[in-house]
Design a binder for these strands. Structure first.
Lengths: 333, 333
DNA sequence: CTGTTAGCGCCTTCAC
DNA sequence: GTGAAGGCGCTAACAG
C-alpha cells in the first residue's frame, strides 16, 4: 500500500508538504501543490484514516442507538442523520439495543474506547444515570427522548401537547368515552402522552376514567390485546387514542374482529405517522412527527458538539401535527 | 485520559507487560498479571482503539450497505448482522444509498481509507465492475444479491425457484391468466423472479403473455400503478404475482378501488414476507425470505474473510418458503 | 514556502 | 517472565 511517504518521494518534497496539500492547509506554492497532487493521482494514494484518527484523536464516526430498527419509525430518522453526516464528513455507526438496557451500556463504551466521537440516543431507557454521566464527558444528543430537568441536548416534539391535540380532536368530534392505550411505563414519552390525554379530558370537563386506560409496548400485538380488553369494559369507549401507530392498527384489528366498525362505531387515533399509517386499508388519523427533521437536527447538534461549538439551542422542540385520515369520525353518525 | 503507560507505572511493570495481559498473550506470571489487572481497575483504564487499530491495521468495523433502510425488509436483516457482529467483536457502519449508485461508490472508498474491514452489499446495483474489482482486494460479501458467474461470496435465496413456486401455486389454484409485477430491470433479482414466473407458466403449458407483465420499483406506489394498468387489459388477469410485498399491497389497493375483491376476483401473491404482510387487513400470501438468517450468515462469512479464513461455501443458498395467507383463493370460487 | 522532528497509544520483535 | 525500543502513518509545532 502506498503511504504519504511514497507520495513525498515521488513528488520530491517532504511528507509535511504532502500533508499540507492533503489538508488544504496553509501555504504551499502552486507549483509544488500541483506536483504533489500529480503524485497522489499517479499512485492512487488514499490517506490512511487509522493513522490520521490516532493523530487527531478523532474518529469522524457518530453512533446512533435505536431501541429497535425493525420499527419503521426509527429507520426513517436514520435518513435524516445520514444526510447531515454525509455533508459533514461523518460516518454512522448503528446500534440496535433490542430494547435491552444492557446492550445500551455496551454502546456507551464505544466512547471510552474512542471508537466514536459522539452518540445520539433515540432511546433513553437505560438507567438514566449512565447517560447523564457520560453526557458530561462526551458529546451526546437525545432524539425523541429527553430527561426532565436535565440539560442534555435534545431534539423532539412536545408530546404532551401532541397528545392533547389528538385527544381534543376526538372530543371535538363529540366523543366523551375516550380510551387511551399508552406506551411502556419506563419511557418518558409514555408519561407525556398520557398526560396530554388527561389534560385534554380535564379541560373539557370529562372525568378521566382509569378503566379506559391501558399500557402497551408500542408494538402491534399489545394494541390488539389492549383493545380486546377495552371492548370488555361495561360501557365501551367510542374512541381510542393510541400512543403509537402500530398499537392503533392492532386496536383496529381487534375492533373489527369483534364485529364493530371503524370509525362508525369506534374512532381510532394513532401516533408517529409511520409509512404504514397511510398504506393500511383504513388510513389512520395520527400525529405526524417530523422524523427526517429530527434526524438532521440531532446530527447537526451532535456534530456541532464534536467540533467544540456551542449549541444555540440545547433543547429543540419541533412541530408535530395532527393528520386526519379515515379512522376517525364524529360520534354517532 | 489514562493510557497504558499510567497502568504500567502504577503496576510497576513495563508497558509491554501491560499489553500482554491486555491481550491474554503469552507468558505473564500470575502475580504480575494480578497486579496489572488491579491497576487497570483502579484507573478505570480502557485501551485506546484508535492506537490499537493503527498498530494492528484493522478497524473491527464492518460496513453494511443498503439501498433503502426505510424498507423494513432490510432493517430486519440488520438484526441478524448485529447479533454476529456483537459476538465476534465487530461494529456495524451503516450505509443507506437511497438507491443511488454514486453513493455506493462513496462507501466503497471506506475500504481504501481503512475505515472499515469489509463490506456487505445488500444492493448490487452499482456498476458491478467496481464491486468485482474491490472484492479481489478486500473482504466483500453480497447478501440477497449476486453476480452470475462471478465468484464473490454471497448468501441469499434461489429467487428463480421461489418465484416458480409462487406462480405454480397460483396455477394449482386453477389460475391461467396470471400477471407479474416485476422489480427494476437493473436488479438481478428482478430477472430471476421474472424467470421463475415464466418457467412455471411454461411448465404448465401456459403461454407467457407479455401484456400481463409490468415493471415496478419494489415500492408500494409502483404496484398500485402497475395494477391499475393491468386492470385495463382486455381480458384481465385472475391472479397477480408481485416481486415485492409492497407492490402486492399496492396492487390490492388498486383492485379494491376498482370495485373488485381480493381474493374472490383476483388472487395476489407477494414476495419477502415483511412484517406488514401479516398485519395488513388482508394478510398476504407471499414468499418468506429467511432475513435474519441471511443477516447472520452474511456477517459470519464476512468476519471469516476478515480473519483470513477460507469460506467452506462461497455461495450460500437459503430456503425460502411460500406462506399461504388470505390474499389467494382457487379460481372462480 | 518548505523540511525536520516529535509524538498519538499501542503491539511486537528481540534481548536478557 | 520481563523490559527496551522501534514503528504503524500521519499531523503539527518549530525552524529556517
Amino acid at each position: 500500500v502506498t503511504t504519504i511517504k511514497d507520495v513525498a518521494t515521488l513528488a520530491a518534497v517532504s511528507i509535511a508538504t504532502v500533508s499540507r496539500v492533503l489538508n488544504g492547509n496553509s501555504n504551499v506554492s502552486e507549483e509544488t501543490r500541483a506536483r504533489v497532487l500529480d503524485a497522489i493521482r499517479k499512485l492512487n494514494y488514499q490517506p490512511n484514516a487509522l493513522a490520521r484518527n490516532l493523530r487527531r484523536s478523532e474518529t469522524r464516526t457518530i453512533t446512533a442507538i435505536f431501541p429497535d430498527l425493525a420499527n419503521t419509525f426509527f429507520s426513517r430518522i436514520i435518513k435524516g442523520m445520514e444526510k447531515v453526516a454525509d455533508e459533514r464528513g461523518f460516518n454512522i455507526l448503528i446500534g440496535d439495543t433490542n430494547n435491552d438496557p444492557v446492550k445500551e451500556m455496551k454502546f456507551i463504551n464505544l466512547l471510552r474506547e474512542r471508537r466514536t466521537d459522539g452518540i445520539i440516543f433515540t432511546t433513553a431507557r437505560v438507567d438514566s444515570r449512565h447517560i447523564i454521566e457520560i453526557s458530561d464527558k462526551a458529546p451526546v444528543v437525545l432524539a425523541c427522548e429527553y430527561f426532565p430537568n436535565i440539560d442534555i441536548p435534545s431534539v423532539g416534539i412536545d408530546n404532551v401537547r401532541a397528545a392533547y391535540n389528538a385527544t381534543n380532536y376526538l372530543i371535538e368530534l363529540g366523543h366523551k368515552r375516550i380510551a387511551h392505550i399508552g406506551g411502556p411505563v419506563n419511557v418518558i414519552l409514555s408519561h407525556d402522552r398520557l398526560k396530554g390525554y388527561c389534560m385534554a379530558l380535564e379541560h373539557n370537563r370529562i372525568q378521566v376514567d382509569e378503566t379506559l386506560i391501558r399500557t402497551g409496548t408500542f408494538y402491534f400485538d399489545s394494541g390488539y390485546e389492549a383493545m380486546l380488553s377495552l371492548l370488555d369494559v361495561e360501557r365501551r369507549p367510542t374512541a381510542v387514542f393510541a400512543a403509537s401507530d402500530e398499537m392503533a392498527i392492532g386496536a383496529i384489528k381487534a375492533i373489527k374482529e369483534k364485529g364493530l366498525r371503524v370509525p362508525d362505531d369506534i374512532s381510532v387515533v394513532g401516533f408517529d405517522d409511520i409509512a404504514l399509517a397511510e398504506l393500511v386499508d383504513l388510513p389512520l388519523t395520527t400525529i405526524s412527527q417530523p422524523v427526517y427533521k429530527i434526524g438532521t437536527t440531532a446530527m447537526e447538534m451532535l456534530t456541532d458538539l464534536v467540533a467544540g461549538r456551542c449549541l444555540a439551542h440545547r433543547q429543540i422542540i419541533l412541530e408535530a401535527k395532527l393528520v386526519i385520515r379515515r379512522s376517525t369520525a364524529p360520534l354517532g353518525i
